[in-house]
Nucleic acid binder design. Structure first.
Lengths: 104, 104
DNA sequence: AATTAACATAAGTCCATACTTATGCGATTG
DNA sequence: CAATCGCATAAGTATGGACTTATGTTAATT
């Protein structure tokens, strides 16, 4: 059950911060640590969790490992959320935004 | 940071099962336990976590407490997800479904 | 070839959390 | 009003998870 790993991965604030940074543009593990006060092994372990949740994917580049957002994880969340669309209030702003953006 | 409580709440498979049951229709805590092999205190604790995450809300009815899905939690997930819409592949089925349903 | 740099992995520690049993509490029932 | 029912809460336990300090591995650098 991949949903379990996805939600658990996002349940940690440090990992959400890492994910947000990657959403702004792919970068390697060392670059991710900049301004984050986190040890190298801790970062590596967090990236491993995000990778197993399909939220992030890696791309070896020499001795660097470039990380980037993996759309699979996000798509799975969207799919999970879609199951409960009956409960979304019609006027929720976020949904309007989503609609507008998908329209283009 | 409510997002933390939301994702952590959904990170537990038992709580996702409870949420799914409630999505099919509101019911009280005892009814939720049916066919679930879970103790009464455990259920009560799970409901407390879901309630704090705004995923579920309660409604006292005499000595029963009826639980139902709270749209707030789902809306917050949708909002979080919307921040990363740049990464959704255009062809993801779930998104098409979402669009279609919101169109009506 | 030896060193260094980027990253992963191993092992141990500490705290969070999912459970248990026991008990409390308010609302119905007899 | 005493007993029971639906549920919450308290307290203890055991497992999981986020960190630490080594150490390993692979690739570039000299």
């Amino acid at each position: 059950m991949i949903e379990n790993e996805i939600f658990r991965a996002l349940g940690d604030p440090t990992r959400r911060t890492i994910f947000e940074k990657l959403a702004a543009g792919g970068m390697n593990a060392s670059a991710l640590r900049d301004g984050m006060e986190i040890s190298q092994p801790a970062m590596s372990q967090h990236l491993s969790v995000l990778r197993n949740a399909r939220l992030v994917r890696e791309e070896r580049q020499g001795r660097f490992v470039n990380y980037e957002v993996d759309p699979q994880g996000l798509a799975l969340i969207a799919r999970w959320l879609a199951k409960y669309r009956a409960y979304w209030p019609a006027r929720i702003d976020a949904l309007k935004i989503m609609l507008k953006d998908m329209d283009q």
